[in-house]
Amino acid sequence: MRDNVKGGALTEVTFYILLSLYTPKHGYAVMQFIEEKTGGRLSLGAGTLYGALNSLQEKGWIEPCGDSEGRKKEYHITAQGKETAEKELARLHELVSVASGIVGGTHYE
């Protein structure tokens, strides 16, 4: 059975931030990563990004890394964050398969 029954859905912003932090990044690089991966579809405001990074840190899904003396603060994803991202991926797979069955085949592009 799926073990992702509980936990709920992530917001797109949350999921993309988690994905971006599989390799350590500072805020600006996170923003660039998301814009690049979505072809500019999702463009994150700095205030929104700041709030999201703080909430994810409170949740324990990401943490600051590197020498804290460095001028730019870098974050990376935690084990708990990876687990969350995996569950979300499974949820999205389910969603896509249900949607494809109803709306029609997967025509990307």
């Binding site: 912003v13 463009s43 405001g45 205030g47 929104t48």
Partner: peptide, 16 residues
């Protein structure tokens, strides 16, 4: 050339 917004999600805007 892009618009300059600090708050982009609805929830965050509501909060602001």
């Amino acid at each position: 050339g892009k618009p300059f917004e600090l708050h982009t999600s609805y929830e965050d805007k509501e909060n602001y």
